[in-house]
Deep mutational scan, measured.
Amino acid sequence: NQASVVANQLIPINTALTLVMMRSEVVTPVGIPAEDIPRLVSMQVNRAVPLGTTLMPDMVRGYA
């Protein structure tokens, strides 16, 4: 089972991601792999991401 990136807090739209906003968790469906967390830092979300939501590739500008 692969860990995915999950929002550690509410992340408002257009917010640049920081390490404290994300955690890794084994979830279904699988989202962005946890090993990509360092790559996600400073990328912006293109929608509001509620606490506990799995980050999907289409939620992060420039990721996919």
Score class of each variant (00 low, 15 high):
N1A: 15
N1G: 12
N1K: 14
A3P: 15
A3S: 09
A3Y: 15
A3W: 11
A3F: 14
S4M: 02
V5D: 00
V5M: 02
V5H: 01
V5N: 00
V5C: 04
V5Q: 01
V6I: 15
V6Q: 04
V6F: 02
A7F: 02
A7Q: 02
A7K: 00
A7P: 01
N8T: 15
Q9D: 10
Q9G: 08
L10Y: 12
L10T: 09
I11R: 01
P12H: 11
I13D: 10
I13R: 14
I13P: 14
N14F: 06
N14R: 07
N14H: 09
T15Q: 15
T15L: 05
T15E: 13
A16K: 07
A16Q: 06
L17C: 02
L17G: 00
T18S: 06
L19F: 08
V20I: 10
V20A: 14
M21E: 02
M21G: 03
M22Q: 00
M22D: 01
M22Y: 02
M22R: 00
M22W: 02
S24I: 12
S24K: 06
S24A: 12
E25Y: 11
E25R: 09
E25T: 11
V26R: 07
V26D: 07
V26N: 10
V27Q: 06
T28Q: 10
T28P: 02
T28V: 12
P29F: 04
P29R: 06
P29S: 05
P29C: 03
I32S: 00
I32M: 04
P33R: 13
A34R: 06
A34C: 04
A34Q: 08
A34E: 07
E35F: 12
E35N: 13
D36E: 15
D36A: 14
I37M: 13
P38L: 08
R39I: 11
R39M: 14
R39T: 10
R39D: 07
L40F: 02
L40G: 01
V41R: 06
V41I: 15
S42N: 10
M43I: 04
M43G: 04
M43D: 03
M43T: 05
Q44R: 10
Q44P: 10
Q44T: 07
Q44L: 12
V45M: 07
V45R: 00
N46K: 10
N46H: 06
N46R: 11
R47F: 07
V49C: 04
P50C: 04
P50G: 14
L51H: 12
G52F: 05
G52P: 00
T53S: 15
T53L: 11
T54N: 02
L55T: 01
L55R: 00
L55M: 13
M56F: 09
M56Y: 08
M56G: 04
M56C: 03
M56W: 06
M56K: 06
P57R: 05
P57W: 07
P57H: 07
D58R: 06
D58C: 03
D58Y: 10
D58N: 09
M59T: 08
V60Y: 01
V60M: 05
V60C: 02
R61C: 04
R61Y: 07
R61L: 08
R61E: 14
R61T: 15
R61P: 12
G62L: 07
G62Q: 09
Y63R: 03
Y63F: 13
Y63H: 05
A64N: 08
A64R: 03
A64S: 13
